[in-house]
Every structure is written in C-alpha cells, then in structure tokens.
Design a protein around this nucleic acid. Structure first.
Length: 539
RNA sequence: GGUCCCAUCGUCUAGUUAGGCCUAGGACACCGGGUUUUCAACCCGGCAACAGGGGUUCAAAUCCCCUUGGGACUACCA
C-alpha cells in the first residue's frame, strides 16, 4: 500500500508551495487507495506559533485535502506532532551514539561560524571535522558544567552516496561532500533530519514527494536510514515554484513588497502606521530597515491602510481574493506536472484518475496569476449552482461583507445575474450596493461626471423614473421593455438610458445587468435612489 | 565561493526515456475583429519558442561535450 505524508512546520499560514506538495502527496495516496498522513513538524520551539498548526489544518480542509492520520483524526502511528515524540527520537539517537555512529560536540554557534568563514575563504566545502576519538560521557558532563552547548552529530559514513530520485534519476554525491550534521540540538530536540527519517520509517511512509530544496538533504537522510536499518522510501523531488521577481515563491515576499512600497514613499507617518499594524514604533522602524518582520496581521493591516496590493502567496490570500478551492487544486497540480493529452481544466476526480508520479517536470515553473484567473473563471462556471452558493457564502462571511446579510434566495439570484464573473470578489464588489441603505450610496466621481452630467443624463434619469413609477408589474422583462422603448424613442443606444440608472442605484458604472439589478433592488428602493441622486446632482 | 539541479513561444507546458510521424501541438497572456446596457463573459482570426557553439548520425528539440543563463542547498530552520 502506498503511504504518503505532508509534513509542514507550523510557522504560519500554508503557502502555495506547501499546498502543492500536499496536493501531490494526497493525489498519489488517494488514487491508489493508499494512506495520506498529516504530520506537524514542530521541533523548532522558537519558530512555531501556537495558531499556525490550526491555520495549516484549516487551509488543507478548504482545499479539500483530507488525511487518514494526523491532527483531529488520530491513528495507530501517533502522536502526529513531533514535539510529542521526544522519547522516540531520544531512543534512536541513543542507539546511534551507542553504536558509535554519532557523537557529541560542544562548539558554540560563534565558533562554528568562524570555521565556516575560514572554509569559504579557502573556497572549500565546509564540513565539520570529526574528532579522532569521540567524547565520553564524562566529557559531556564536563561540557554541561562549563555551560557549553551539547549537540549530537551523525558520523556520516565514508564513500560516495548515490540517491535514486523519481524526477532526477540517479544523483551522486562524492565522498566527503556530506559533512557530519547535527541530529540533536542543544535544547534536546531532534533536528529535522533526524525526526523526518524516524517518523517516515515508523509511520510506514513509502513515497516522499517534496520540494527540490530537499534534494541536498537526501544523501544525509539515506545514510541515516542505512545506519538505523530503516527502509528507503521512494523519493520524488519536485521543481520549485518561482515568482515573478525570480527566486523561490516565498512568504517573505509579502513583507518585502510592503517594505519596498513604504521606502518608495519617502516620508511616512511612522506612528500612524505602527498603530494601524498594532505594533510599536520601534518594531515598525526595525521592519522598514529590514531588520525584522512583524506578524502577518500587522503586515496585512498596514498594507491595506496604504492601499498596497501584496502578492498572494498563502492559500488564505487566494481564498480572500475570491478564488475557488477547485481552481487552486487544479492550477497547483499543473505547476511542474502535466497530462499527456493537453488536458488542463480538470475536476479533482479527473486529476485523481490521470495523476502519474513519473510525469513530474524537472524545471522550475513560474506562478502565473493571469492564468490562474482564467482557470477560476472556468471553474466558477463548472462547479454548479449549489457548490457556488456554498463557496460564495463562505467568501462573504470571510470578508465580513454586507452581502452576507442576504438570504439564499437573493444570493442565488445574485450568482445567476453575475454569470461569467471571474472571481467571487468580483461578484461581491458589484452586488454589495444591494445591501446598502438608499442614502448610503457612495458615488464614484468619474461615473457621475461621465454619465449623469453629460448628454442630459439627469434628464434621461428623470424620465426613466417617471416610467418606472408607472409600472405595476415589476419584472426584469417589464423593466427591460421600458428602457428599450425609451431608448428607441430618444433614438439613442440602450447605454444612454441604462447607465444613468445604474449610477443612480449603485453609485458607479459597474453592476449586474441593469434589469436584474433593478429587479433585485426592488422598485421602491430604486425610485428612492433615483430621487436622492436627482436631488444631489441637479443644481 | 563550494555542491547539486535545470534549460521548447512572454508564461504554463506537449514532444526528450525507445533520434525520423515536429514546416514543433495545446493553454494563458498579448494583438486585431465580432457580440454588447456597464464590468465580465462569449465567438472568430493572428503573433510567438527548440539559449549559443561544437560533435555523433543518412537524420537531433530529442544523444554527447563546452559555454551561457536560471534555480536549490550551503543553520543547533524545516
């Protein structure tokens, strides 16, 4: 049976790169009736935030990637948080130590940095120099008493290491290229390398699909597996997703974008911006100098205040941008992977059918947001009215939109009237006027000038009002009839009568088809808004 | 700097493992036109690539080498 896993470190929201890794592992397990495990790699006490694991869980759920074992599910191989598996790691580290395959070291980070610098100067690969004789238990005790850090290193065996990768084929690492790496930190926690090898073995993981950034770690992992007598899972190192600016698509891009934007402005009100972000002025200044990065909510708040559009990187960014999970899963699945028959727009079931591990691409790919938009347009059409309503409700809830006060009936009418929209955000933006008070409409200056103040827009609007008021059977058809007739009588295009009306009811020139808009708003509110508009601009 | 990986339209990619079926296919973007009550959507048409240089071969996008370019890693992060 195929067993795969997704093993994020809970340092924040799930980002696109991680989500893609999760997707491929999920796909491989699901298509063969195998098992998909979610494991939280929280061995770095400093970096983990308490809420991050929950965010990752929520994001995976939103994408529809469910797991058979892991948080909230449980199973025979738990616990699924590495921080709760300390005794397991200790046992294996002890074993390596006993067998002479690992040894203690006491250098401080500063001393290590010095050695590293020296190696760089000599243009050589930096490796920790293994001592002739490993420290004894007494040495360890002494070091502790002196207050020196105590870590454990794995004694990497001599000789070339050849790894076999599904994507890259055979990759050879020359003897001596892999140095003795740390497997237990001075705080007693295992490093990633140790924990991942042990857990993959214990949880019966058969296939590991991960990012190319792990390729260089693999020989070390393999040596560890050999020393421990573990099985070797099948490895597939996927190409990296890069962003427009070049380099790996990273969550650091959001703070970076904001920082550049602030710098580009010259003078800014630091006090005000710090307040907006809920951080201190010192923290804010440290951020703009590039010395530190505040929490994500602070970044988001400041960006929103300044009107800076941050690049979408995290799964939640896309949810918040009005993209469908179906789109994300489809699109991410096509980053570094393709079908043999040019199929692109696919439902998840279809992806499941044709997924083939051997078709993973070797070269990096760029995340193209324009293409994502096109995919979303297609999926909005494809998902069906029931699913779309569900997604839309979740979206307006998430955005705390006034549209959220609408009931299913009106929401369904909205969705129908907005057929062809590219994102849920577009639908929300052009229907929120339906939920404003009649006198709370904000008029877009450009729209007013263009359609109301020119070509007797107000006069036409007054005439429209008269005719609408006389209507007793209010339907979209009847409204259409009136407007078309009027346009004909005036020998102008429909736009000349529709646009003033549109601006009157929603304040700008963007809305669902005008007949539907009036119908959904209701005749009373429509007439009221026309009156308010006429009053406001007829001077 | 060191180690490793990669290289087809602007972008995602098919074709490379088994060289001829490739005057290189699809999708997005872009450009032109159509439809139209706004924004979208939709329809039709068009532009556009084998990074460069050497080999091997009757034949190379496909195999080999070099150059160039891009990327990953280089932590007591994962």
């Amino acid at each position: 049976m195929i067993v795969t896993r997704f093993a994020p470190s809970p340092t924040g929201y799930l980002h696109i790169g991680g989500a893609r890794t999760a997707l491929f592992n999920w796909l491989l397990a699901r298509q063969s009736g195998g098992k998909f495990i979610l494991r939280i790699e929280d061995t770095d006490v400093k970096r983990n935030t308490p809420t991050a694991a929950q965010q990752v869980v929520d994001d995976l759920k939103w994408l529809g990637l469910n797991w058979d074992e892991g948080p909230e599910v449980d199973g025979p191989n738990g616990p699924y948080h590495q921080s709760e598996r300390r005794d397991i790691y200790d046992k294996y580290i002890g074993q390596l130590l006993d067998e002479g395959n690992a040894y203690h070291c006491f250098e401080t980070p500063e001393e290590l940095a010095l050695i590293r610098e020296e190696a760089a100067k000599q243009k050589k690969t930096y490796n920790y120099t293994r001592p002739e004789v490993f420290p004894t238990a007494d040495d360890v005790e002494n070091a502790r008493l002196q207050g020196r850090p105590v870590v454990v290193r794995f004694a990497v065996p001599d000789g070339d290491i050849v790894i076999n990768d599904v994507v890259r084929g055979e990759v050879t690492f020359r003897a001596g290229e892999i140095g003795d790496f740390i497997i237990q930190k001075s705080d007693g926690f295992p490093t990633y390398h140790m924990a991942v090898v042990i857990d993959d073995e214990l949880m019966g993981v058969t296939h590991v699909i991960r990012g190319q950034e792990h390729l260089m770690n693999t020989p070390g992992h393999q040596a560890l597996q050999d020393a421990l007598g573990f099985r070797r899972p099948v490895y597939a190192h996927m190409s990296v997703t890069v962003s427009e600016g070049g380099g790996k698509l990273s969550k650091r891009e959001r703070p970076k974008t904001l920082r550049m934007s602030i710098k580009g402005r010259g003078q800014v009100d630091t006090q005000k911006l710090a307040d907006v972000g809920g951080i201190t002025v010192e923290e804010f200044e440290s951020f703009t100098k590039g010395q530190s990065v505040p929490d994500m909510p602070a970044i988001d708040a400041i960006a929103k205040h300044l009107g800076v559009k941050l690049p979408e990187i995290n799964v939640v960014d896309f949810a918040s941008g009005g993209y469908l999970p179906e789109t994300m899963v489809n699109f991410m699945g096509l980053l570094g992977w393709s079908t043999s028959d040019d199929r692109e727009i696919m439902a998840l079931e279809e992806q499941l059918e044709c997924f083939d591990l051997t078709r993973l691409a070797k070269s990096n790919s760029l995340f193209d947001r324009k293409k994502l938009m096109a995919f979303n347009t297609e999926h909005m059409r494809m998902v069906g009215s029931e699913k779309l309503l569900e997604h839309f409700k979740r979206y307006i809830e998430l955005k705390k939109s006034p549209v959220a006060s609408g009931d299913d009936e009106i929401l369904n009418r909205i969705l129908l009237a907005c057929a062809g929209a590219r994102t849920l955000a577009e639908i929300e933006a052009k229907t929120r006027f339906l939920f404003f008070a009649d006198d709370a409409i904000e008029y877009d200056e450009k729209a007013v000038n263009k359609v109301l103040m020119k070509n007797d827009g107000l006069g036409v609007l007054a005439e429209v009002r008269k005719r609408l008021a006389a209507l007793d059977d209010v339907t979209a058809e009847a409204i259409e009839n009136i407007l078309r007739t009027l346009a004909e009588e005036l020998s102008v295009g429909l736009g000349k009568v529709a646009q003033p009306l549109r601006v009157a009811i929603c304040g700008n020139t963007i809305s669902p088809p005008i007949f539907d808009s009036v119908d959904m708003l209701g005749m009373n509110n429509t007439l009221k808004r026309i009156d308010i508009t006429l009053e406001k601009f007829s001077k």
